[in-house]
Amino acid sequence: MSQAVVVKGAWVMAWLGRVTVGAAAVAVGGGVAAGCLGLVSGALAPDLGVGRRTRRLGPRRVDIAAPREVVFDVIAGPYLGRATRATREKVRVLERGRDMVLAAHFTPLAGGRLTATTVETVRFTRPERVDFRLVRGPVAAVAESILLTGDGSGTRLVYAGELGTDGWAPGERWGQAVARRWEDTVAASLSVIKREAERRARHA
């Protein structure tokens, strides 16, 4: 469910294009390129504590033809269930408590040559809620929730969140690029949840 991101960093690269050529430019350019790569991959956590800007993620609503207990199990499976090989390629649980895990999420970039990594806490309130909070990733802060309501045979899933960046206007522009990709990733994950929950409900 959660969400490693791919971002272009256009504002950084535009700034880089104006750097004077020469040895100094090469050195600075290399540093900026490394910083861009660190942001995209999640290796550099840009939590500066100044110039914080926030924006909403979602909300997204998905109606699922399956009981909410089934939907909850589909969401929680990669974190609380037995890890499969396919699961381990996308999610690795680093620490596990009774109702919360610390997990790393992996997304391949650049045709598999790079991997974006985010680390998040995931808290479970069965059967109606799952909360995600970013610990390390391409922006300073992300908090998300999935709420499940239903009448027994069907479930409405509501996703909502907030993304925060530091660095005033430049950070805000970076956050806009991240948020677009982040929400695309969430939408794809919700589609997978819907398909799998409905498949399980049909075969129950």
Rank of each mutant, 00 (worst) to 15 (best):
T165S: 14
F72S: 01
G17K: 14
F132K: 01
T115Q: 11
G137T: 04
W15A: 15
P108L: 10
V5F: 05
A160D: 13
V101R: 00
M1R: 04
G152C: 07
T20P: 07
D184F: 08
R68F: 00
A140V: 07
E69F: 04
V7P: 00
G9F: 03
L148W: 04
V119C: 13
D184A: 15
R180D: 12
V19T: 12
R173K: 13
I146A: 06
A169V: 15
V40K: 15
T54V: 13
A23C: 10
G22E: 06
A197V: 07
R55H: 08
G154Y: 01
R82Q: 14
G30A: 14
R202V: 03
R173M: 10
G112T: 06
R96E: 11
A187Y: 02
L57A: 11
R68H: 10
T155N: 12
G112D: 06
V50S: 13
L157M: 12
V130T: 07
R195T: 15
R173H: 06
V70S: 03
E198S: 10
V12H: 02
G42I: 08
A116L: 04
V40P: 03
G161Q: 05
G42M: 09
A45T: 08
V32E: 12
R55P: 02
A204V: 11
T118Q: 01
E183S: 09
T125E: 15
A66C: 08
G42C: 10
A187K: 05
V178Y: 00
V91M: 00
H105N: 10
T117E: 12
E95P: 02
V50W: 11
L163S: 11
G97Y: 05
V158A: 09
R96H: 05
W182L: 13
G81P: 03
F132P: 01
V119W: 09
V101K: 00
R136A: 14
G81H: 05
L157H: 06
G97I: 01
L48R: 10
G9M: 01
I193H: 00
S189P: 00
V28C: 12
G30P: 05
V71G: 03
L134H: 04
A66M: 05
V74W: 02
V5S: 14
G31D: 06
R98G: 09
R181W: 11
D151Y: 05
T149N: 13
P170F: 06
T118A: 12
Q3N: 04
V142W: 08
G164R: 02
T117F: 01
Q3V: 04
E95W: 00
V130L: 05
P67C: 07
